[in-house]
Design a protein around this nucleic acid. Structure first.
Lengths: 109, 109
DNA sequence: TAGAATATCCGAATATTTAAATATTTTGGT
DNA sequence: ACCAAAATATTTAAATATTCGGATATTCTA
C-alpha cells in the first residue's frame, strides 16, 4: 500500500478525531440538520459548530443544501456511520474489560 | 448519547489519525509482527515506530507477546480493520470523484 | 554479562481547539 | 429593488497537543 494512502486515510481519521465532529456526525446519522438545529441539540456555541462543519465540508464528509433561511447538512458517505459504530463497539468492549478488571482487583483485596 | 462517549470515541480516532500508526495497523492485519519487522517493512526509524507502538499499546489497540528476543505485536480488536477498510473505501470514492471532476473541467476547456 | 531488541527522553517545529468579535449571505416584506 | 434581520461563516490569538529522530536507557536472552 502506497504511503500516500496512509496519509490521506489519516486525514480522514483526524477529521473524525474530535468529539464535536463525532457528535455532529452522529446527529446526521439519518437526518439532515440545519446549523441552528445542531447548535440547539449539542448546546455547543454557534461559532464552534460552524467551524467544525467547515472542516467536515472541506474534507467532503458532509453535503449542504439550502432550504429557505437554513442550510441543511447531511452525510456524504452514510457508510461512515458503520465505521463509527465499529469503533464505538470496540470502545464499549474496552470499557467492559476495564470494569471487569476493577472488579477483579476489588475482589483481590 | 453521552458526551463522554464522543470524547472516548474521538480518542480512538485520534489514535488512528497518523499515517505511521495506520501503516502499522495494516501490517498487523493478519500477522503478528516484531518491532524490528515493522521497522524494516516501513523503513521508518526504530524510535518512531516504537513510540507509535507505545501509543497503540496505551490505547489498548494492540497486544504484545515476547518470543525469544523479539516482542510481537498484534491487533487487540481485529474488527478495527473493518472500520479502516470502510474509511479506505470512502477515500477511494473521494479520489475517483476528484478524478472525474478534473476530467470534466478539462473537457470544458 | 555482553549484546540485541525495544523503550524513553528531549526539544524544536507544527497543528489543533475554543469562543468572542466580526463579517457575510440570504430571505422575506414592502 | 431595497432593507432589516436571521442564519451561517470567518478571523483572531492564546492555550494546548502532536510529531519527529538523535541520544540514551532499559530489558531480556543466550
Amino acid at each position: 500500500m502506497n504511503k500516500k494512502v496512509y496519509k490521506i486515510h489519516s486525514e480522514i481519521c483526524k477529521t473524525l478525531s474530535n468529539p464535536v465532529r463525532l457528535e455532529v456526525i452522529n446527529l446526521l446519522r439519518n437526518k439532515k440538520r440545519s446549523v441552528g438545529e445542531l447548535v440547539n441539540l449539542t448546546k455547543i456555541s454557534q461559532s464552534t459548530i460552524s467551524q467544525h462543519l467547515t472542516i467536515l465540508r472541506q474534507k467532503n464528509l458532509v453535503l449542504t443544501k439550502r432550504k429557505g433561511k437554513n442550510i441543511y447538512y447531511s452525510l456524504a458517505y452514510p457508510e461512515m456511520i458503520k465505521a463509527c459504530d465499529i469503533m464505538r463497539n470496540i470502545l464499549f468492549k474496552q470499557l467492559k474489560k476495564n470494569e471487569k478488571l476493577v472488579q477483579k482487583i476489588r475482589r483481590g483485596k
